[in-house]
Design a protein around this nucleic acid. Structure first.
Length: 346
DNA sequence: GCGCTCGATTTGGGGAATAC
DNA sequence: GTATTCCCCAAATCGAGCGC
């Protein structure tokens, strides 16, 4: 879309579109970065708009009017925020993990870099750091911001179809802290499992972009984790409980337990989808050989590895997955991942 | 849009209490 | 005695609204 085309038809978010369904790559959801609230809102809306435009390029125009409507703030404040954000966004960075498919790399095939682990399990992980944007501009006269995403961000946005999280943007507009919004996105990703994966304190700090802050664990907990949890709890959709793991007296890991408070409307709900989406209430009876095969394959899947207990060895984890697959109730937790490891139900 | 103001939130520091 | 947790306070920063 050219600037002239945009100016002639600028309104994307309007008062009659209350629901803004956001779809973000899980890699982006779990990436480490630190933005202001306005910057995070703007990037979220820009990614959403990019998907909706479907023009194939990676530039977005957002007017102050749209930003005001989407966030339910005054237009004058939206002008201020867009202008201020235009000055800071170019220097903002994010860090995320990618997977190198070793088979493709060895055979010099294209697309060796992916956002989810290859199913065959032969991959290397690499932590990458990038700028969010390649260029940004603010049009004072017309009151809109222009964003051109960097190549790595284009990659993440294009690869959203592999593993992604959906939620309704309108449910986050009352959240007044960046940390709360980020936590809400993470909770939307993990809500079907009823808990996040257990993460080391440094992983949590990285997630919130505060790795070099809060030398005291307690300060990180009280100033980042607990306030964010309180905001998400007060929003009403989830009840979150913080679980901490200690070695002796030292807190090493945090995990958040998630309880859904409402039955969601499937047309409006936030929803996490990894690779595929299937009903999970039908028990699949497997042969002994299938149990062995798929317990082993599931154990290699990063999303399933989040279910492992701290310090749990792989053989024990596989055995536990095998027994879960035999249990009609426990199998439901694994059903969403079975197709990912090649299981086809009859 | 700009400048100003106000309230809320975030952040850092210090010290007391507690656990080992 | 040392490390960690907890509480309190003040300063800095951010979000939002108002008048022009």
């Amino acid at each position: 879309m050219s600037e002239n085309q945009f100016v002639s038809n600028p309104i994307f978010y309007s008062d009659d579109k209350k629901d803004i369904l956001i779809s973000k790559s899980n890699t982006l959801i779990e990436a480490g970065f630190d933005l202001t609230l306005a910057e995070h809102d703007l990037m979220t809306l820009a990614i959403n708009k990019l998907h909706k435009q479907g023009t194939g390029n990676h530039e977005v125009f957002i007017t102050a009017q749209e930003f005001a409507v989407a966030n339910q703030i005054s237009e004058s404040h939206a002008y201020q925020q867009l202008k201020a954000t235009a000055n800071t966004l170019l220097s903002r960075q994010l860090k995320f993990q990618l997977y190198i498919d070793l088979d493709k790399k060895q055979n010099k095939e294209p697309h060796a870099v992916c956002v989810v682990p290859p199913k065959h399990g032969r991959y290397e992980t690499v932590i990458t750091e990038h700028n969010w944007l390649q260029s940004v501009g603010y049009a004072d006269k017309s009151g809109f911001i222009y964003l051109l995403f960097s190549d790595p961000l284009r990659f993440l946005i294009d690869k959203t179809g592999d593993a992604y999280t959906n939620y309704n943007y309108s449910k986050t507009i009352d959240m007044t802290s960046f940390n709360a919004k980020r936590l809400y996105e993470l909770i939307c990703k993990w809500k079907d499992l009823g808990k996040t994966k257990s993460m080391h304190i440094d992983e949590w700090k990285e997630f919130f972009g505060v790795l070099d802050k809060y030398p005291k664990v307690f300060d990180f907990k009280r100033r980042v984790l607990e306030p964010a949890i309180n905001v998400v709890n007060s929003q009403g959709e989830f009840t979150l409980t913080l679980k901490q793991e200690k070695v002796g007296r030292i807190i090493t890991h945090f995990q958040i337990l998630i309880k859904k408070n409402t039955i969601e409307n499937p047309t409006k709900c936030t929803k996490t989808i990894d690779m595929f989406d299937k009903p999970t209430d039908t028990f699949i009876r497997m042969s002994e050989a299938q149990l062995d095969t798929f317990a082993s394959k599931l154990a290699d899947l990063s999303e399933v590895q989040a279910m492992a207990n701290v310090g749990e060895e792989m053989p024990s984890f596989k055995a536990r997955l095998r027994s879960m697959l035999k249990d009609p109730e426990k199998q439901k937790k694994l059903t969403p991942y079975l197709a990912q490891v090649g299981f086809k139900s009859k």
